[in-house]
Computed example of a mutant assay.
Amino acid sequence: MNEVYITKISKFLPNRPISNDEMEDKLGTINGKTSKGRRIVLRNNQIKTRYYAIDDNGNITHNNAQLTKEAVMGLCDDNFKAEDIELLSCGTSSPDQILPSHAAMVHGFLKNGNIEINSASGACCSGMNALKFGYLSVKSGQTQNAVATGSERTSTWMKSDTFEEELKYLETLEENPILAFNKDFLRWMLSDGAGAFLLENKPKGEQPLKIEWMEGYSYAYEIDACMYAGADKLDDGFLKPWSEYPSDQWSKKSLFAMKQDVKLLGEHILVKGVDSLKKALTKHNLKPTDIDYYLPHISSNFFKDKLYKEMTEQGVEIPWDNWFMNLSKVGNVGAGSIYIMLEELAHSGKLKKGDKILLSVPESARFAYSIALVTVC
C-alpha cells in the first residue's frame, strides 16, 4: 500500500462576504415579513459573514459544479495541470440536478480529458466520503493522484420564492401562512462555497499532509431522518419521497426545500458524534492529548460548548487551545466546510512538522460521522 499525502489545498468562496443584516436582501422575505426566527438562529450560531453565489443585483453567479471547478483549478499550476488529474471525486448535498452526477458536471466544466470520476452523495459527510474514495484509490495504487472536493450551493434552495406556493396554499386552507421553523431554521445557517484537495503518493509541496487513517460511522439503523430534502416526514418518522406525491403537491409542500428536525438534532448529534470519535481514537490507540489541532465541523457555535462538555463526559476531551474553526467567517458550507477549514489552517503559518490534525465531520441527515487523522510532514 502507498502512503497518501494532501499536497495542495484550494478553496473558492463566491462573490463578497454577506453580513447578517444583508441576508434577507439576498434570500428574500417570506410572505413579505421579516423572519422571527432569523435573529434567534443567528444569535445562537454566531455566524457573522457567509458567501452566496448571488451577486448584488440578485443574479445567480455560479452553480455548484462551477464553484467546484473553480476550487479544483486553484490546485493547478505549471507543475500540476488539470490534465494531470487521474481521478476526480466530488461530494455535495446540493447537486445542481438529480442526473447527471455532480462529479460528471464538474468534469464537464474542467474539460481536462478522459479521467475516472466519482460522486459521493449524502450531506456533510459526502465531502469526506469523496476524500476517502480518492484516498483509497491512491493508497491501493489504482491511481497516483486524485482530486477530492466538497462543495455546496444552497442559497437558491433558501430563497423566498421556494416557499411562496406553500404559503399561498396555506392561505387557501385558512391556515396561518408562516413558514415552519424546521424550514426557516436552515435559511440562516448555510453558505455557498467549495474546497479541493490534491492527493498524491509522494510528499510533494512545501508542507504536505499525510493521511494516516479515515473512519466512518452511521447511526441510521437506530435514529430517524433529521435533515432531509425531496421528501416529507410523516408523523411516524417515515420519509415519503417526492416521487410518490402528485406534481402539484411538490411546491405546495415545499418538498424540495431543505428541512431539519431541530428536536431530533439536539437529542442525538453530540452524543453520537462523541461516541464515534471515541470509537475512532480507541481503534487507532490515539489519546486526545496526542492531537495538536482539532477541526470539528459544527453547524452552529450553539453546539461548541455542548460538544466540549459531551467530550469531557465521555472521556475524550481535547483542550480548547487545540481547536481550530472558521464558522463565524465563512458560515456552514456543509460538505465543503472541512476542506475550507483545513485550507485556512494549512496556509496560516502555524503548522510544524509532526503536528497531528484531527478532522471531524458530523452529518445530521440520519446521523453519520466521518473522522480522519492527518500529520504534517
Rank of each mutant, 00 (worst) to 15 (best):
M1Q: 08
N2Q: 13
V4M: 07
K8C: 03
R16G: 01
R16L: 10
R16C: 08
P17C: 10
S19K: 15
M23V: 14
T29E: 10
K33A: 07
K36G: 09
R38V: 00
I40M: 15
V41I: 15
K48L: 14
R50G: 11
A53L: 13
Q66M: 14
Q66W: 03
V72F: 06
V72S: 08
C76E: 05
C76R: 01
N79Q: 14
K81H: 06
A82F: 03
D84L: 10
L87H: 01
S89T: 11
S94W: 04
A103S: 15
M105D: 12
L110Q: 02
E116H: 08
E116W: 05
S126T: 04
K132I: 09
F133D: 06
V138E: 06
V138S: 02
K139S: 10
Q142E: 14
N145A: 09
A148G: 04
S151I: 06
N176L: 02
L179M: 12
A180D: 14
F181N: 06
M189K: 00
S191C: 11
D192P: 10
K204V: 12
P208N: 13
G216E: 12
S218D: 05
Y219N: 09
A220R: 09
L239I: 09
P246F: 01
D248K: 04
D248M: 03
W250N: 03
S254E: 05
K259Y: 01
Q260L: 14
Q260S: 12
L265T: 15
E267Q: 14
L270Q: 04
S276N: 07
L277V: 11
L277A: 05
K279W: 00
L286C: 13
D290Q: 08
Y293G: 04
P296C: 09
M311S: 13
Q314T: 03
G315H: 08
P319L: 10
N322V: 02
M325I: 13
S328M: 05
N332H: 05
A335L: 09
H347S: 15
K352R: 11
V361W: 00
S364T: 13
I371D: 03
C377Y: 12
